[in-house]
Nucleic acid binder design. Structure first.
Lengths: 388, 388
DNA sequence: CCACTTTGTCTATTGAATAAACAAAGTATA
DNA sequence: TATACTTTGTTTATTCAATAGACAAAGTGG
């Protein structure tokens, strides 16, 4: 059914505008909100009172007078609730508890040795129970759990395929909802990482942002016109399987010459004839490069060139404001950045490259957990429109 | 300034919903509109009366009674105004006059022999003057002119670069607005073609649609979440310069191994060592293939393989509902379709390919002119919110 | 102490929607 | 042919979220 306009819609819209302003400005008065938004000061006063009643906002003392009455300063109640964010990696699970603004109040990492569904599910449930215990009391409690996974996820929260975990058709959301009566959101780890960078990283002001999760494979998340772009089935962003060498190597996905064969950890480790996906391998390589190992430096350079080729494609295709390189490979920034940028300079179209910045993530391996937490927070506010 | 909700917004929103329903349903009653939209029948009655007053809607007789009073049937007034759509090609200019629904009431094609700015501007102005004369009288007259061009266009309507015309920094919009006091919209020809397919072609029900304009080069338009995606500077969609053969041939854009070197008319003609961009060359090739020329058929096949590689990339990246192949090369559908589809079958990810359809344009070379006309119509309605 | 300023609350008004009454114009049946 | 019922469209009373502006509270400066 079509969404039509009525007074209920208007009120909700304006209340959301007011709440977003309070979140953004970190101490703001009703008068200032009225000025910034154009809403009538009576309207702002009324809407703020309702937000105070639902405990999302509180009065935090008085501000400075500019000649008349001192304003009452408002703050977003970060601790009105908490969210759990989880990054399910190939060799590890990273957990965070955040408040409603995404600020981390607790984090924990576990290693994975057994990839079986039963083993991972068991450890997830155990640890989430512990996190529930660790979470401070608050008006809304734990409002949801968000999880980023390295694979294809459908809209029901089923992991259709995660090649690096060896998983197919795993109903992760349902399994967790059998245990925990809170909202559970499952998303691809690159999408979650993109949201993390968009909310907490250097991608906060970008309307069109591409996040590259470069690790064992390559996954990409796309914020287009301020929203994650997912495609018809929710599977968009598999640029790791974009052909960049039409007559190159066979990929296990069935294609030939896929980007991730040349521009990921897989490419790096293959060149050194190491097959193990051991997490420490990349660290060892970085250490060797730091000691001046020419062969390793050359390998890093080559990976940089191919990352640059794919990034140039992204610039020509999307014309984004910002491209953020994240994932485990971004810890090797020092050894790949220069060749990435010089390859982009050579290959990306001049006009397209003018307003595009390519940077490495500041959040490093935290993007995905933070993004996962944000997924749960967004869902909470969407599902509880009556609170706002 | 933030857009806040008020009663003015509500009314505009609902009136647009009512008008869209009348456009879509082609003879509809107030009662039916109320039922379909959920708006109160008094509201619908009131809004329809205002649309009748502004001459966008009229009462077109009575419908069948289903037991009570006969309904009064409403129609969108297609002839309330007209729009001019222009496709400025490398060797030709295609003009249409359409009504407000995009139905063509007149069309005309001219050949281009002199690419100079002065010559083309002169002929454009002369022909547009003639089109103004040819347009029937109507309440709103010619509401605007839309033009698709083969190059990079900025938001001011300046053609920054059109390599196949040999143009740089041509202020086309301003030049035409010096002559004609109507709204003029300039866009890239692939973007215009995408809109044409989205409004009038087989892309009408697609939320995520990729249109490939394959001719001398390759340009791509992207409808993502129901809207054209343009990127930060408006230059998105240059997939013709997406690297698919990292160590392949040098492109004049500065990159190496660009898709359009292998998958366009350019590739086809180069293989036969013909350099001319003569429009008839492709026709001759199609004719030779029809006569069984093995070499030509093999060349078409090769182009089909490379089109398939790029289309597989598009499927993996965007996960769209629909990919439409248009532009001049689509007239060779018979000789390239099978190899495109089999290459896609081999190379596109299985999950991603499930809900994606790849078709050839029914509008053929008309996509761009119709899309250009639609650009002008959209701008008219956006700029004249007070009429709706 | 007073005049002025700024912030916040309160009240009257506006108007676009809805609900429901009413009018107009059909059909079916006795 | 008259009547009862149905469907469509118009009109009226009501609701309520906004705005405009009056008023209150609480400052500053002379």
């Amino acid at each position: 059914m079509t969404i039509t306009g009525d007074q209920n819609l208007i009120k909700k819209m304006n209340k959301t505008i007011v709440l977003d302003e309070i979140k953004k400005l970190e101490l703001v008065s009703r008068a200032a909100i009225s000025e910034k938004t154009g809403l009538n000061k009576g309207t702002v006063s009324s809407l703020v009172n309702e937000l105070i009643e639902s405990q999302f906002v509180y009065e935090a003392g008085t501000g400075k007078s500019s000649g008349g009455r001192k304003p009452v300063m408002l703050l977003f109640n970060h601790q009105a609730g908490y969210s759990i964010g989880i990054d399910l990696g190939v060799n590890y699970i990273l957990y965070v508890i955040t408040d409603l603004s995404g600020d981390i109040i607790y984090e924990q990492k576990e290693s994975i040795h057994d990839h079986s569904t039963v083993a991972i599910l068991s450890t997830l449930i155990k640890t989430i129970r512990e996190l529930f215990q660790k979470t401070p009391k608050s008006p809304y409690g734990i409002i949801g759990i968000g999880i980023g996974v390295p694979g294809i996820v459908n809209e029901k929260g089923t992991i259709l395929h995660a090649p690096n975990l060896g998983w197919k058709n795993v109903k992760l959301k349902q399994a967790l909802n059998d245990e925990f009566k809170v909202s559970v959101v499952i998303d691809n780890e690159a999408n979650a990482g993109t949201l993390g960078e968009n909310q907490f990283g250097r991608g906060q002001n970008a309307e069109n942002l591409i996040y590259i999760s470069a690790g064992i494979g390559i996954g990409v998340g796309m914020i287009l016109r301020n929203k994650i772009y997912r495609g018809v089935s929710g599977y968009a962003g598999e640029l790791g399987h974009m052909t960049i060498k039409a007559d190159g190597e066979q990929c296990r996905c069935g294609n030939v010459g896929c980007w991730e064969l040349y521009a990921s950890e897989k490419a790096l480790l293959k060149q050194s004839e190491a097959i193990s996906h051991d997490e420490n391998k990349l660290q060892q390589y970085i250490h060797l490069a730091a000691k001046g190992d020419e062969s390793v430096m050359q390998n890093f350079s080559q990976v940089g060139v191919y990352l640059g080729i794919g990034i140039s494609n992204i610039i020509n295709i999307f014309n984004p404001e910002l491209i953020i390189v994240g994932g485990r490979l971004s810890t090797a920034e020092q050894w790949i950045k220069d060749t990435i940028l010089s390859t982009v300079e050579q290959r990306a179209l001049t006009y397209h490259n003018q307003k595009t910045e390519v940077i490495f993530s500041d959040l490093r391996t935290k993007s995905t957990t933070l993004g996962a937490s944000t997924l749960a927070i967004s869902k909470f506010f969407t599902d509880h429109e009556e609170l706002i």
